[in-house]
C-alpha cells in the first residue's frame, strides 16, 4: 500500500512510502513501520496522526479492505 506523506516527511522521505500491510492493523502499527524504516524522523512521526480515507483515525483496528487511501498527518500549522 502506498502511504501519502506531507510536510517535512514528504520533503525528507518523499511524497509516498510503500508499505506491505496485514489484513487488519492500527494507526500506531503504520507509524512504527515507518519509524523502523526512517529512524531519523521518529520525532516527527511520534507527533503525527494517521488519516484513512481522509478521516483522522485513533486507536481503532483498521481493516485493509476498507482502505482507499492512507496518509500520515504531521502536526498541522495552517492559519
Amino acid at each position: 500500500m502506498r502511504i501519502k506523506l506531507f510536510s517535512v516527511l514528504a520533503e525528507k522521505i518523499g511524497p509516498t512510502i510503500e508499505l506491505d500491510l496485514p489484513e487488519t492493523f492500527t494507526a500506531q502499527n503504520i507509524l512504527e513501520r515507518i519509524k523502523s524504516l526512517h529512524p531519523d524522523y521518529e520525532d516527527v512521526l511520534d507527533q503525527s496522526l494517521v488519516a484513512v480515507n481522509e478521516e483522522y483515525t485513533n486507536d481503532e483496528k483498521i481493516s485493509l479492505e476498507s482502505v482507499d487511501e492512507i496518509a500520515i498527518i504531521p502536526p498541522v500549522s495552517g492559519g
Binding site: F6, S7, V8, E11, V44, Q47, A51, Y56, A71, I73, P74, P75, V76, S77, G78, G79
Partner: peptide, 23 residues
C-alpha cells in the same frame, strides 16, 4: 482550523527553516 485542518507551513526565517507545528 489551526488544530484539525491538514495544512502545513514551512517558514523561511533569516536564521533557518522552521516547520510549523513541530515540537
Amino acid at each position: 482550523l489551526k488544530h484539525t485542518v491538514p495544512i502545513w507551513k514551512k517558514e523561511y526565517d533569516k536564521d533557518k527553516i522552521r516547520w510549523g507545528g513541530l515540537e
